[in-house]
Simulated scan of single mutants.
Amino acid sequence: MKTYSYLLEHDYGLAPNPFGKYCTLGVCKPKIRGSRNLEIGDWVIGTGSRALENISGRDFVHHIIYAMKVEEILSYEKYWSDIRFAYKKPILNGSLVTVYGDNIYHKDNNGNWIQEDSAHSLADGVTNEEHLRKDTSGKNVLISKDFYYFGDSAPLLPKDLFDVCHSGVGEKIIKSPKQDKLIGWLKENFHNGIHGDPINWIEHNQLNLF
């Protein structure tokens, strides 16, 4: 068992998408999602960055934004067709939860990728080729019921766990005993599920003030 750790530069509720019974990682982070070394039982964590401070005005460095235990690994086609995840298909005129649905990729009868109108497409539903290429290169969607999503309530990690945070682009791999201490700290101090709203939702809240 191992943990993939990376910095979040934005947090819209899209990657990860923590809503409903499942936390899913279906877009962004293609190297993690497509890793041949990724196994059921591994963890993925996202920690705060200076970019999130620029958005919110709060310091999120060394704060944990989310952690998910990988319990299923699905292809995009299986994710799209699985009735359990129909609620994660985006509805852009709906609530923020539905706007940032991550169930957006599937193939047509000729095997060509379709990118649904979503937070990763361009205006008027035009395909964003850069996002399509990057997202689908990850091949898989990661699924978890055993997750902790903190968002704007992200707690500060204990100082002896600061080094689980990655410090740059990409990701780092954490193994035992440091991983065991991190997961133990989560389980001892927090319940599974959602503890806060996505940090970038402050942008929507600010727009609604005017």
Rank of each mutant, 00 (worst) to 15 (best):
L14V: 01
F19P: 04
H120W: 04
K69C: 13
N110P: 07
L156S: 05
D102S: 13
P30S: 09
A51E: 15
S56Y: 09
Y4E: 03
R84C: 02
D108K: 12
K134P: 00
K78G: 03
N128R: 06
S81N: 15
N112S: 05
V99H: 13
A86Y: 10
H62G: 06
I55L: 08
G184N: 14
G196D: 10
K89V: 08
I40W: 10
F147G: 14
D180K: 10
T98N: 08
W80K: 00
S144L: 07
Y79W: 11
Q179H: 10
Y149C: 01
K181E: 15
F162P: 10
N17H: 13
V164H: 08
T136K: 01
G20K: 04
K145P: 05
H10N: 01
D163L: 02
G46N: 01
S95A: 08
E53V: 07
N37E: 14
W43Y: 02
K29L: 04
L132T: 01
K145R: 15
R50D: 08
K172V: 09
Y87I: 03
K181A: 13
S176A: 07
Y79G: 05
M1F: 14
L161R: 08
D102H: 00
Y22V: 08
D146S: 15
I32M: 04
A67Y: 02
Y87W: 04
E72V: 04
H10T: 05
F150S: 13
W80E: 03
N112M: 01
N93I: 13
